[in-house]
Amino acid sequence: MQSPTIWQRMLSIDRRLLYLLLFVNIIVFLIAPIRMPASISPPVQKFYDEIEKLKPGDLVMISSNWSASTLAENQPQLEAVLIHLMRKKARFTFISIEAQSRDISYRLAERLTKTHGYEYGKDWAHFGFVPNLIVAIKGMVNDLPATIKEDVRGTPISQLEVVKGVKSLKDYKMIIDVTPSGTVPIWISYSPKGIPILYCPTSVMAAEAYTYLDSGQITGMITGAKGAQEYEQLLKIEGLGARFANAISFSHVLIIVFILLGNFAMFMNRAQARREA
């Protein structure tokens, strides 16, 4: 029996070898101190410009709906956005429709706010987990204190200084949705008109959101870890986004190289078969 040619072997390459290559590639470029400046995409620039318009004390609603599975993309986004909000001295409140996100976002915000001198209850608060976003938004539009009642620490909302005098979602200046799932159409449909909605999706969800960007229903968008890197660049900080985007960049290169190699092997194999025939 004839032994397989190099092209045939390439076409039936062991998938474990591919996995190993990708694994090594990710590890190397996560650790390697290579930093490539990103080109700022228009949706990220719009996101940044919209937050720049905030005045000190403006109230922002952050809908954090991600769990650990999309941490690599949503955590750098949320960190960069929080840093920007704190630089602008804006106040913010969180809400989650993802049970795990309630803890993740609360702990992340607690860690970041401490380093920026933000005080819980006065400058920010977490409203915790709500099981149904549509009903929660509709409730908050009509009567926010009656809908939320208390924060994650069990403090009645009436005692939270950050939302003192706030009657409904209409009193907010901005809504930011950090999510891997399709929650942004719900915010667009049910939130009060005139409040800008900013969106932080995972890369895979971003393609669907360009229609809302086009129509102006979303004011800005940070796409995955790569968008977070662009945002960090605008903020002139180096966070998780830059490191993650680096690994993603070179993973894309690896994928492209192997796609080209696969096609090359296919053509060479066909040519050889034709010659032999």
Partner: peptide
Amino acid sequence: LDAAMFSLIAFYIFSAAY
């Protein structure tokens, strides 16, 4: 564990793309 489970998709994508 949750993050590790989800990141496995990248390996399947690489193999499938090839």
